Simulated assay, not measured.
Amino acid sequence: MNTTFVTFADTTSQSGGAAEQDSVLLDAYSNTIVNVAKKVSPSVVQIKVSGRTYGTVSDRRNTLPPQRRSPGQEEQDSGTGSGFIISSDGYLITNNHVVAGAQRITVSLPDSRDFDATLVGRDPATDIAVLKIYADGLKAIRFADSKQVQVGQIAIALGNPYGFQYSLTAGVVSALGRTLRSESGRLIDDVIQTDASLNPGNSGGPLVNSNGDVIGVNTAVILPAQGICFAVSSNLTALVAGKLIMDGRVRRGYLGIAGQLINLTERIKQYNQLSARTGVMIVSVEADGIAGNGNLRPGDIIVGFNNDSVASVDDLHRLLTDDTIGRSVQLTVLRENRKQGVMVIPGELK
């Protein structure tokens, strides 16, 4: 009688090896998060506002759709949010909606020191604001190049949700190139989507990579969705913050018109050799002297801006940068259904 011995030694060895490898990977992930927390936490602050005032009734109304709210955006005269230090001399970044209308802004540091903050400037169009405090021993956090961010990479959010100071959540970058409607009505481009959990009070806190460098500013969540959160990209934030520090505001071009989206018929498109299906019809022209718009007429349909196609009001907002202020630009319009060029001089939006 032949006897066959069956052994599971090899299987057990492989299973043990796989478990050990998984443990090493999990430890590496945990160590990464721990190291980021140690590196970044000293730069994250809590922001408290009080005496909030609103210029008009519409200023008090939440202009974002009900399903999309900025974490911490509530109709109240006081509140809290988050921010992070970007220079050792006291400049820090937060969201515009955290500090808008506040009479007093207090910044609480991780070492329990509190300082009154000065509002350097805010930009509702990108929901970014810059504050300044006068304190010693500040540790600044660096910006990463958000163009190098990839879907699936680690994303770590730090802030003060519901008043719980210096909380951390981790996830991944879920998508890139999103757009988000700001309270001013303009679209924020190049928005990062992440599943790192955000809650009221996280607004203005940093979204960082595995090196602890900022890839975005936590701005909004979609309610009641789970794990759909948004951050303004670091490149856009750095650009806006620089202009706020230098000038106190972000300058944008202004045409002095009221426009609305209009569909173009296939006949008009083919006759004028247009690729876009829509344009911006001018409803009214404001002759206020700020913009050189005297050549525009109500009823004109804007379909081009210099060499760029215009299919919506958002396209016009994107193209009316500070570089266009006071300079002649050519709008391509349909007047009586025929394409022609019209020269205008954008003014500065106040």
Rank of each mutant, 00 (worst) to 15 (best):
L255F: 14
A157W: 00
D314Y: 08
T32C: 03
V57L: 07
S41W: 13
V310Y: 04
S328V: 07
A37V: 13
G81R: 05
V130L: 03
G289R: 05
I128T: 02
S174T: 11
L109N: 11
G292D: 02
L138F: 07
D190P: 12
R277K: 12
P110N: 15
P200H: 04
L319Y: 08
N62D: 08
L223K: 13
Q67Y: 15
A170F: 09
G79Q: 13
T56V: 05
D190N: 14
Q340L: 11
T278A: 05
V36P: 08
E74C: 05
V214M: 10
T63C: 12
Q73S: 10
V130F: 05
T194Q: 00
Y254K: 05
D195Q: 05
L168Y: 14
A37T: 10
N199A: 14
A196K: 14
G79R: 01
A175D: 03
A28N: 09
V172Y: 12
T32E: 01
V172R: 11
D323P: 08
N62S: 02
P65T: 00
N62V: 03
I215C: 11
I228N: 01
F84G: 09
G216C: 00
S13V: 06
R68C: 02
G159F: 02
A117K: 03
R186A: 09
V24A: 15
F305P: 13
N96S: 12
V232S: 09
K39V: 06
T3M: 07
I345Q: 04
Q150S: 13
G171Q: 09
G326K: 10
A238G: 00
L261G: 05
S234T: 01
A18I: 06
G163N: 12
G289P: 01
Q46A: 13
